[in-house]
Design a protein around this nucleic acid. Structure first.
Lengths: 145, 145
DNA sequence: AGCATAAATGGAAAGCATTTTCGTTTACGC
DNA sequence: GCGTAAACGAAAATGCTTTCCATTTATGCT
C-alpha cells in the first residue's frame, strides 16, 4: 500500500479515504475491475461514494501508472493494479480469462522485433499496445478437472 | 472489390448499394475510420443513409474479417480494411499516426515468445491483441522536412 | 420478367458508459 | 487551528452505439 500512497503523493494527489479504499480494493482483489464494480463494493463500507469519484480516481491512478487500463468485452474499460517494481519500465500485462487476475509480463514483446517490422513495412514504430489473455494456474486446474 | 463481395456472400450477407459504397470507401481511402466519418462521406453520394446502417454494416464486416476494429483515441472505435491475402491467417496491423493508413504485418509477434511467457507467468495463453502505432514513409518525410 | 420473403434500411428513440457542472466538504501546508 | 485548493456527491449532460419498427429492397424461384 505504502508505495502506491507514495505514487499518489508524487503525482500531487491528496491521500483521501476514497483513494485509499480504491487502492485497498485492488490490492486485496488482485483482479481487474470496472469503476462500477469498484463502486458497488466500496459504497457499502464508505457510506457515501459517488460513481464519478471512482471514475475520476481510477483514471488519475491510471495516468500515474498505478493502474493499467484495458479494453474489456462489450465496450467497457477495466483497470487492474500494476505491481511492477517500476511501472515506468516498459512491460505488458496478461489477464486471466477465468478469474480476471492481472499479472505483469516483464520485458517487451515488440522491442526485439521492431527492426524487422520497420524493415518490412517501411513504417517507423512509435508505440504499441499488447493485451495478453490467458488462464492462470488455478483456472487451468479448475478448467481441466 | 470482388474478393470482399465474395466474403460478404460467404457470410450470407446481401450485396447492397450501401455495403458496396462502404467497401469502396475503404478501398479508396486506405485509412481507418469511424462509422460516423464513413457516414458523413457517403451520405452525400447515397442520398439517404442512416448512421445505424453504417454501424451495423461495419460491425458485420468486422465479424467477417473484412475490417479490423481498433480502439482509437477518446474511447472510439475505428475500422480499417484488412488487405491480407487470407484474413483467417493470424497477423497484426500497424496504423500510421500521421495519415491513419492501415498496413498488415505478416506473422505473429506473440507466437514465438508464447512459450517463454507461459513459463515465466504460469499462465496458459489463450489469445492476444497487438496494436502497433507508427509513421508511414510519406509521413516520416512530411514530419522530418 | 414477376413474386414471395427474409434481409436490409432509415428515422426516432433508447441505452448506457463516462464526463461535466457546481455547490459542499475535506486534506494538508502553513 | 486556518485558509485554500483539491476532492467529492448528486444530478444532469454528453455522445457513441444500439434497438425498435415500419418501409424498402435483394435475391432465389418460377
Amino acid at each position: 500500500m505504502q508505495r502506491y500512497i507514495r505514487m499518489l503523493r508524487e503525482g500531487k494527489l491528496k491521500i483521501t479515504p476514497r483513494r485509499e479504499a480504491i487502492l485497498a480494493y485492488f490490492i486485496k482483489e488482485g483482479k481487474y475491475a470496472t469503476p462500477e464494480q469498484v463502486w458497488k463494493k466500496l459504497r457499502i463500507s464508505l457510506g457515501r461514494l459517488g460513481l464519478p469519484t471512482v471514475y475520476r480516481n481510477m483514471e488519475e491512478m491510471h495516468q500515474l501508472g498505478i493502474l493499467v487500463k484495458v479494453e474489456g468485452v462489450e465496450n467497457r474499460f477495466y483497470y487492474g493494479l500494476c505491481r511492477a517494481e517500476d511501472p515506468q519500465v516498459h512491460h505488458h500485462h496478461i489477464i486471466c480469462q477465468g478469474c480476471h487476475k492481472v499479472r505483469e509480463v516483464e520485458g517487451c514483446l515488440v522491442g526485439s522485433l521492431s527492426k524487422q517490422i520497420e524493415a518490412k513495412t517501411g513504417f517507423k514504430l512509435t508505440g504499441h499496445t499488447v493485451h495478453l489473455q490467458g488462464l492462470c494456474q488455478s483456472c487451468i486446474i479448475a478448467d481441466g478437472g
